[in-house]
Amino acid sequence: MASSSDMGSADFESLSSTSDVELLKRAWRNEKAAPEILPYEGDLVERAKGQIELVEENIEAYVENGIDPLVVSLYQMDLDRTQFLLRSYLRVRLLKIEKFMFHSLKSEEAESRLSEQEKVFARRCADDLAKHFEESVLRKLPENYQSVLKQSLISEVDDMVPEPHLDTFVACRSNSHFTLNLYEEGESTQTEEMYRGDLYFIRYKIVKGAIESGKMDLI
């Protein structure tokens, strides 16, 4: 797959194989590898859930109708793999929400990346943690130091909120041929030609856009 000689077949493959499982796998890998929470793939998750339910029903029907146990077990394996992807995807997101809950609730942009259930989870988490900190520590501190979000009253910004570290480096692979600007605006104009299948260690901020538009995948 990596060599340039079978590029043609790989291209063809990408056209024909955009099944939801492929998309889910991509979403899972990106979510695992990205330092921040990515926008929630709501439609995809709903479709995957629907397909999982359908297959579950089918499998029950197969068992009742006495279809070859081999065939049933193969369908079960396919189902298990999809369920694993879906669960792992949702769990990775929960882990990240726990890590960055105050940050996720601070701005609308960050909050819009979460699903409705995730928002509820983040809020409850944040409330519980804030309550716990207040009861156990903060109330006993001098008045200036009682905020959960700030070091002291004189802090201008919320400096006690863990934020995702976007200057980190990620491994990613290109899905198409395009030119990537290697620096943020104002820094430099150096660019790099990306070809399909090329693999890079690259600063996350630079490829963030390309990942969200599907031009690159995190691996």
Binding site: A2, L182, Y183, L199, Y200, F201, I219
Partner: peptide
């Protein structure tokens, strides 16, 4: 310091 290309490196 921004991008390092890794050719043919496996998973």
């Amino acid at each position: 310091t921004s991008a390092v290309k890794m050719e043919n490196v496996s998973a």
